[in-house]
């Protein structure tokens, strides 16, 4: 029995730190790419071209109505079957970014649509060009309004990044799973993992709520 399982030791900290780092890096990639794409699509959709709207709408709908875990498995099997398998990190980043994009585009669309048309008319009547109106009026006002929602989506992406473990990416939860199967100490390891996510998520979610309250008044 003793030779089969070895308890948790300090030499495992390297593995855990790799997991922490991998979780952080894939979350950051997904949030950045998802935000940029979501911003573009959200803006395009708020420009209310019905055809573009319906097209993007239906694609984004699929991304939001199919579980992330199924999307991950489907995508990585698909690229494998097509003969060009991707590294777990690349496949995971692509799926997670597109998934983030689907939510972000809704957030940004709401933000852009919250800028009242009369404000844009006013900007135009002051002699601003169309791009100046977008850059100086719609972007800052629209983005400011959606900051709490953006933060909420970002936090859920950090939590959802745990699912990338199913396609073999060594993020925190997967490293902990491996440690559990070696040490047979599930409780200690899992609590540690939970604390890590909590430490990241808790302050930010409170900050989001604080900003939301401040803006409401």
């Amino acid at each position: 029995m003793n030779s089969l399982f070895t308890p948790l030791s300090w030499s495992d900290s390297g593995l855990i730190l790799t997991g922490v780092w991998n979780t952080i890096i894939i979350s950051v990639v997904a949030i950045v790419v998802g935000t940029v794409l979501g911003l573009i699509i959200g803006f395009a959709r708020s420009e209310s071209n019905k055809v573009v709207n319906a097209l993007f709408g239906s694609v984004l709908d699929v991304l939001r109505s199919v579980p992330l875990i199924i999307q991950l498995i489907l995508f990585s099997t698909f690229v494998g079957a097509m003969g060009s398998p991707l590294a777990p990190f690349v496949a995971g980043s692509i799926v997670l970014s597109l998934y983030t994009m689907a939510f972000m585009s809704e957030v940004f669309r709401g933000g852009f649509e919250s800028v009242s048309p009369s404000m844009q008319t006013a900007a135009r009547s002051l002699g601003m060009t169309k791009w100046q109106t977008i850059y100086h009026i719609r972007l800052p006002i629209g983005l400011r309004a959606v900051f709490p929602s953006w933060l909420g989506v970002s936090l859920s992406v950090i939590k959802d990044s745990a699912l990338v473990s199913v396609i073999g990416y060594m993020e925190l939860l997967r490293t902990s799973e491996q440690l559990i199967s070696r040490t047979q100490q599930p409780l200690e390891i899992l609590i540690g993992v939970g604390i890590f996510y909590f430490i990241i998520s808790y302050p930010l979610s409170h900050y989001g709520r604080y900003v939301e309250r401040k803006m409401a008044i």
Binding site: L155, K159, D160, A162, L163, S165, L173, E177, I180, Q185, P186, L187, L190, I191, V193, G194, Y197, F198, S201, Y202, S205
Partner: peptide, 19 residues
């Protein structure tokens, strides 16, 4: 609200085994 769903499921499935 602040931990992943997968963590909760692992906690229920593996973690509670410790008790």
């Amino acid at each position: 609200r602040n931990t992943p769903a997968l963590f909760q499921i692992y906690m229920a499935y593996f973690g509670l085994g410790a008790f």
